[in-house]
Design a protein around this nucleic acid. Structure first.
Lengths: 305, 305
DNA sequence: AGAGGTTACGGGCAGCGTAAGGATC
DNA sequence: GATCCTTACGCTGCCCGTAACCTCT
């Protein structure tokens, strides 16, 4: 009948390359999926999928139909999101988040989501951007707030915020209250993000060019841990300015101005989603993340943590 | 459920401003329409239409939904037209045609339509463009091949051909075989389209400016009749060049070159359709008309009649 | 033998039509 | 009372799940 349900079933069979997998995804039995596809093929009077052990692959007609199916399903989701009473929307959004975001406005975002979609469940996964990227691409998370943009097919990147990397130190470290040189700074160990992160790599690139020998670096995958170590006077912390607002405010950490501040990498975050016709909630959450980040910056209030 | 059928029912209720009229249009009973709308309103948890004696009018939410409904239905029709086996398409297209088109390539178009959509019924209405225009706007015809374009909301105009108006005469009339002056020409009566047509008006405008007194004009609503009268030597026929190809070819009528040939109005035809999400067949026919006209001109063959 | 898809069959429910019941002019 | 919509109710047909069967590795 070419109705929405059939298109949805077809979409998932095509996307997951299998009747069985589509059936699981759609919470129905595999014969039901078979029947829908058979009906679709009869209506269009052509084969849409070649069945093989390896998996169902689309025929030419199938590819053509898939294009329409995606457009229809997307339009439908859009309509539901726009018109359906938001408070009635149910579902689960798996949200991947970089730790920096956790320490800034994630809680604001969660409050906002819950206010608008009280029946939606949020699952949060905190990891470094590289891992989040893979999880997004493989569909393990629906939205990722990370250092973007991600260049992969069907990924939509929504810029949300852009924080400069800055150097911080405990007053106990005794760094002078003026613009310091690279040499002065590198007398202390650098405490920063883990080696697999982009800010780490960009930072190393810049520091390596300035000093004769590589600086001592303590790379740490936990932002809290970096802050802790910096507070303890182990060295100079290099993190996003926003991550230590509280410590800076209370005077426990000082901003260290350096001669290469203007050359420091910026952490550009994006809310990235996989462009799928279902789960428009993911896009909605991405949009909320954008507005939350903007609001948080406007307020310029030192958020808790 | 916000499925396609519900949207279709809603679309027609909104468009026709009434449950009853929508029911007739959709060949279903009025309670069934009520039920679908009620279900839609329940799903969206809001009223979509205000019922009043005068007719159902959309609420704000209703207007919003209508936009989505149109987009969805249109996309659906597009999909069906693109994927569905064309030979399986059923339906009726009411086609309004100007007489000039009838005398040129209409039969080619009908053959083409029948070859592609054997199960589609074509109803043909021949009239002058002004009448066709009204019939199209009021929905009495689905496609109109007429002197366009039509400037009315939701009308799509597809240019199909552009024929110059020319003067013709029977050799018996004795007009010289050279470029004649307006005065020489107007010594004879002018036989042309009916007074309610655009070419008549444009022609009169041009002739009036050139001669002291208005020319004698036999306006005739029937093209065959115009040709007949011209053949009989009653006067000078002024019609689209293409309409008398056969007579000209057989030598029964001659082209009369005039000093104002270059200033003659051109008959620009369009295939015009009402932009409705259903009846994509109309658009398909319009497109076929365009290609048929182009093919006919390329062949430059004097088509029968 | 096991994974993946098809065929066969029965039950539940959505959606339609018929018929009767308001509401508003 | 005429028109337009809603409510009530029974029926049909679709769609799904269960279960058995097919096919290929």
């Amino acid at each position: 009948m070419l109705d929405l349900r059939s298109l949805e079933v077809f979409y998932w069979v095509a996307t997951l390359s299998g009747f069985r997998r589509a059936a699981e995804k759609l919470h129905m039995t595999q014969p039901a999926v078979s029947a829908r596809i058979a009906q679709l093929e009869e209506a269009l009077d052509c084969r849409l999928l070649d069945r093989s052990k390896a998996g169902a692959v689309l025929t030419a007609k199938g590819i053509e139909l898939l294009g329409y199916a995606e457009r229809m399903l997307k339009l439908h989701s859009e309509m539901v999101m726009a018109l359906g009473p938001a408070s009635g929307v149910r579902g689960t959004v798996r949200l991947g988040v970089s730790e920096t975001i956790v320490h800034t406005w994630l809680s604001d975002l969660l409050k906002k989501i819950h206010a608008i979609y009280p029946k939606v469940t949020i699952e949060i996964e905190v990891d470094v951007s590289g891992v989040l990227r893979d999880q997004l691409v493989s569909g393990e998370v629906d939205v990722a707030l990370l250092l973007g943009p991600i260049s992969a097919p069907r990924i939509k990147n929504l810029p949300i915020c852009d924080y400069p990397l800055r150097c911080f130190a405990s007053p106990a470290l005794g760094l002078p209250d003026r613009v310091v040189t690279a040499a002065e700074l590198l007398a202390h160990p650098i405490i920063t993000y883990s080696r697999v992160t982009r800010p780490y790599l960009e930072l190393m690139e810049r520091l390596a060019s300035g000093s004769a020998r590589g600086p001592r670096v303590f790379a740490n995958s936990s932002l809290s841990s970096i802050v802790r170590m910096t507070l303890d006077g182990i060295g100079v912390g290099v993190v996003a300015e926003v991550a230590i607002r509280e410590e800076r405010h209370s005077g426990r950490l000082r901003l260290v101005r350096t001669e290469f501040d203007t050359d420091m990498p910026r952490l550009s975050y994006t809310a990235s989603t996989m462009d799928r016709p279902d789960n428009l909630l993911a896009s909605a959450v991405a949009a909320l993340a954008q507005s939350t980040a903007a609001a948080w910056e406007r307020e310029a209030a030192p958020g808790p943590t």
